[in-house]
């Protein structure tokens, strides 16, 4: 049982994104950026966004983290590129529901590869890892919108 849950947590997509994170670099010409920090484990990452009007034209990240936080960040960069702000935030809400195992949340087909994060719901102590990059992404957007940083994020650089 434990091993099955562990296999579901660390499925091949997750390990692949951990070992070969996509868009793992600073972003030249970023319009906003924010740090995500997990004080419990010392993990820290930075997310850079290039907003073209209301649309995310590019997104990258860099930092140190566990397989879950790194894979989630990597998957996020692929998922939100080309999306509008509202779509990106809506995706965050769906991912949050997915990783916390919120009752009645079906694994939605339109989540694509992000569905690989569903295994996190069996490990409540790892939800923060899976959410770290998403909080940073949202903080960066809020900062760009003049909304200030969320408490989970340290620095927000306005454009």
């Amino acid at each position: 049982m434990a091993d099955a849950a562990l296999d579901a947590l660390y499925q091949e997509i997750i390990l692949d994104h951990y070992r070969r994170p996509r868009n793992f670099r600073p972003l030249d010409g970023a319009t906003c950026t924010a740090d995500g920090k997990n004080p419990n484990c010392g993990d820290a990452l930075t997310v850079w966004l290039k907003l073209d009007g209301d649309r995310v034209s590019d997104v990258t990240f860099q930092g140190v983290g566990c397989a879950i936080s790194k894979a989630s960040a990597s998957l996020m960069t692929e998922a939100i590129k080309g999306k509008t702000r509202a779509e990106a935030v809506a995706l965050f809400e769906q991912v949050r529901a997915l990783v916390t195992g919120e009752a009645g949340t079906p694994a939605r087909k339109d989540l694509g590869q992000l569905r690989a994060l569903a295994g996190v719901s069996r490990f409540p102590m790892r939800v923060k890892c899976a959410s770290l990059a998403w909080h940073a992404m949202k903080s960066a957007m809020d900062g760009a919108a003049g909304g200030g940083a969320a408490p989970s994020a340290g620095r927000v650089t306005p454009p």
């Binding site: 091993d3 562990l6 983290g65 566990c66 879950i68 490990f123 890892c129």
Partner: peptide, 11 residues
């Protein structure tokens, strides 16, 4: 990563 090791050990 140590966190992943700890999760695997916990299992």
């Amino acid at each position: 990563h140590p966190h992943d090791v700890a999760t695997a050990l916990d299992a």
